[in-house]
Design a binder for these strands. Sequence first.
DNA 1: GTCTGGCATACGGTATACCAGACCAGCGGA
DNA 2: TCCGCTGGTCTGGTATACCGTATGCCAGAC
Lengths: 229, 229
Amino acid sequence: MTVVSLVVKPINDDISLKEKIYNSLKEAICNMNIYAENAQLRLDERRLAEQFAISRTPLREALACLEQEGLVRIVPRRGVFIVRKTKEEILEMITVWAALESMAARLITKNAGDRDIESLRKMFTEFEDGQIRAHIDEYSETNIRFHQTILTMSSCKLIKDIADNLFIHMRSIRAGTISDDDRPDRSIIDHMHIIEALEARDADLAERLVREHTLNLADHVKTHIDYLD
Amino acid sequence: MTVVSLVVKPINDDISLKEKIYNSLKEAICNMNIYAENAQLRLDERRLAEQFAISRTPLREALACLEQEGLVRIVPRRGVFIVRKTKEEILEMITVWAALESMAARLITKNAGDRDIESLRKMFTEFEDGQIRAHIDEYSETNIRFHQTILTMSSCKLIKDIADNLFIHMRSIRAGTISDDDRPDRSIIDHMHIIEALEARDADLAERLVREHTLNLADHVKTHIDYLD
DNA sequence: GTCTGGCATACGGTATACCAGACCAGCGGA
DNA sequence: TCCGCTGGTCTGGTATACCGTATGCCAGAC
């Protein structure tokens, strides 16, 4: 006997307006250059609600979430403002990033499979020799993906989550610094050393190399980035 | 001439209902034992609003913040539930904690003053010899304060903030594990070694000791704590 | 007795109305 | 002319009404 049953996929209505607005605003804020002179940092609740064609209630809930996350500051009776991170704060973020990623490297030496570590090396095969400067944009993307892969491979979801959050604030910085000086060349050398340490399952070395690599970025930002406040 | 003026205490109007409710709920959730069998994990918006004698709007904004922070989960059309952390998640938190605190130790060796490091040692002078077990509660408090002091002394506000957030979820665990086995004795020995490394300004050693000390806690939780799911 | 469809009710999501503080412009007095 | 007061408006904070869905109960049918 053949039973033909009706198969329907469950409709996902479990994404509320609050969440939609939250995501939309978050993306919008991340994609705008908040450090530009003429940046409009003030958000008008009523106008936003109008633009989204929703009421202020779910919008305000979304804004409350964004404030909790640090992307926005709500001043009672004054308005909601996109926050500019200070150089100090960016440096602290990179420091925390260094702590997290170096711990991730340590975890990888203990838990990751050889296959996974191998895949890291493949990411850079396309950038042989002097190819880096010629394809600086691609390399920048690969660079970011390398670090995110390490965080993911740690199998510690919390590390990845916190780092992702930090990354939101750092994206513009990171993209803007990669092409300075001899950074791309040094960067790829560092990466190779890190991969070697992971392959050798040398937890202490991998941790140290990752930490120093990231703290190098901090030093670079500290001395070379001026457009932060 | 005597001027009798009306003295009123400053109204704290720059703290919105949303924030007040947020703090109040957060404290309430942290202080209840969410792992008890009969724990009431469901929150009723309307009843809460009634209890606080406010409307649902600021309450919902506070709940949205709590959800963002991970203390609560809002299921559309179903309600808001206090989240129980799984053992897995607790272990990840301790891992991140280890990463942060070990980085904090590293920073201390570079930036903190001798006076500050000295103050760490003083925290334990009252627990000479076998005094620990006799005053286990006091020691537990000191123990927590020791770790928080390290985080603070790093002068990296972000490290402290993230760790504080993690600590909310770990408080009950930490308090419940300190008295097991020979942990208090080993704990104080570890602490002393950490202090010595800080005094010697040995960044690598201090970092390693702090990391191992915290990861020990993780191991202990992993093997000895069963009441998490 | 059990299964099912309908109805009542409860509760969360959203919209809207109202209130109060903040800021500004214009006017009047010094 | 300049300072300060005042009223109006703008905008965020709060309360409340309404809507739709989830849930539980009951009745009727098999």
